[in-house]
Amino acid sequence: MAHVHEHEHDENAGAEQRKAIWRTFWILLAITALEFLIAFTLDAGVLKTAIFVGMTIVKAFYIVGEFMHLKHEVKSLIWSILIPCIFVVWLLIALMREGGSIFDLR
């Protein structure tokens, strides 16, 4: 962390960063509020589920990217975190289909 060794107690130091943090917070809050709106206005179905999953991924992107700072790390670190998660997505889809087929066979 070479770029952060600014030991002088400057009031403006990190102001840009703090602005980005609060912006991320408002985005996350707005998405959560929107999720509530959709939960009570839209009928259950594939579209509703797709919207919820999409919004969850957007929220995850902001939390991991901004709060956990992954967006600003080197590419190799970003990919070492993201690639294993692809297997999780695959397993989720595979076992949900499997569950549907278990239901049909029962």
Partner: peptide
């Protein structure tokens, strides 16, 4: 992976 295992199991049981 641990949390995914729980959520994936939830998905499997829910769909079955």
């Amino acid at each position: 992976f641990t949390f995914s295992a729980l959520l994936v199991a939830y998905g499997l049981v829910r769909f079955s």
